[in-house]
Design a binder for these strands. Structure first.
Lengths: 208, 208
DNA sequence: GTCTATATAGGGATAGAC
DNA sequence: GTCTATCCCTATATAGAC
């Protein structure tokens, strides 16, 4: 999919043992960006955890923003991949449910990246603004756009939004409130709930 | 409820016209903290919008954190108020729905404060840590705690969580995706959806 | 209550040795 | 690839005049 490096699949399994320093930096940064936020995290802090000096970071990344960029870009890849199959926004709750189904898988697999994204909206918005990154293959933006479709009845749109936010919201709760629950069990219950939401009990206020 | 000042009700209506500078600072800060984030917002920026110099801010607030604190504290008040009626966590989806009902009202009324809170989690966590603020009368924390109740069946807990997250999530969407929809219409559709979620179509996996 | 000026600290980033 | 040393800038916060 990308141009050269395809060692970017399972994220962080160091090949031999000397480990990819670049990847270690990304792992540490991901953790700190989640717990402290991007702005409150200094290069010094990252270097400290790494066991190296501050300057050494700049051999692997041109700037602090570049680290954020790299993490953010991974989600772009995930988005492009997941959205590869569907192009046109889903205009029915049923089709929407199929998308939520996929989304749940992605969220479970790339949990930390999603959380990081959500907790650093401001910093990432700046990134987009300053570096002219296209946002159209980001999962969250795609869903947002789809929800803006005025051709869908308002009642359906609200329910679709609820389903979407319920799924995204479980992000915080897994590992906290639901830490004792296996992901797959949680995912199934979530799917069931979303499904109920997407097929309302009775219908009357539908337009046309 | 508090000790002395009770001019804190509708938030920002300046009494005469000279306006409460302190309140103007809070309004500006609230806006900037939402759009740029707490860390990325400088005192200089706030002062600039105010038309005053940087130092003048420090006459009204002891520190930048104090500004965040004041905003955060308002949500505490809201929480205490709203939670005054209920003490024991709601152990049934029906009781939970009643709480969501209240929550929707609070969110609509204090929309910006809620958004600010959500977008500056890290900074506010620091606040709690360094200043030993009790979190127990914050709406979001209260709901979180309630959801951890192991006595509630897992299936119900998940649905309660979904309802909660759906309600909280509509926060971002109002004014964006649903900007053309009157709040009350949106609120009603939201209530309807949450209600469906809280009373599943068929039940069998309930424990005891 | 608001100003100017300043103290102090820490951050991002670069230069150049090893 | 990593180090030490350093530059430069901006930020929070304070002192003291008005």
């Amino acid at each position: 999919m990308s141009s050269e490096a395809d060692r970017t699949q399972p994220a962080e399994i160091g090949s031999t043992g000397h480990g990819n320093t670049r990847q270690r930096i990304l792992d540490i940064a991901l953790d700190l960006f989640i717990t402290q936020g991007y702005d409150a995290t200094s290069i010094r802090q990252i270097a400290e955890r790494l066991g190296f000096s501050k300057a050494s970071i700049y051999y692997h990344f041109a700037s602090k923003q570049d680290i954020l960029m790299a993490l953010h870009y991974k989600l772009h890849e995930v988005g492009r991949e997941a959205l590869g199959s569907v192009q046109v926004p889903a205009t029915s709750p049923e089709a929407w449910m199929a998308l939520l189904d996929q989304l749940i898988n992605e969220i479970l697999e790339y949990h930390d990246l999603f959380v990081m994204q959500e907790r650093n909206r401001a910093a990432i918005a700046l990134l987009h603004h300053e570096r002219h990154v296209s946002e159209h293959d980001l999962l969250e933006d795609w869903f947002h756009t789809a929800l803006s479709d005025q051709d869908i009845g308002l009642r359906d749109r609200v329910r679709m939004a609820c389903g979407f936010k319920a799924v995204m919201g479980l992000l915080d709760l897994v590992g906290d409130v639901f830490s004792e629950v296996p992901s797959q069990v949680l995912a199934d219950l979530l799917r069931e709930a979303a499904n109920d939401l997407m097929s309302p009990k009775l219908v009357e206020s539908h337009p046309a």
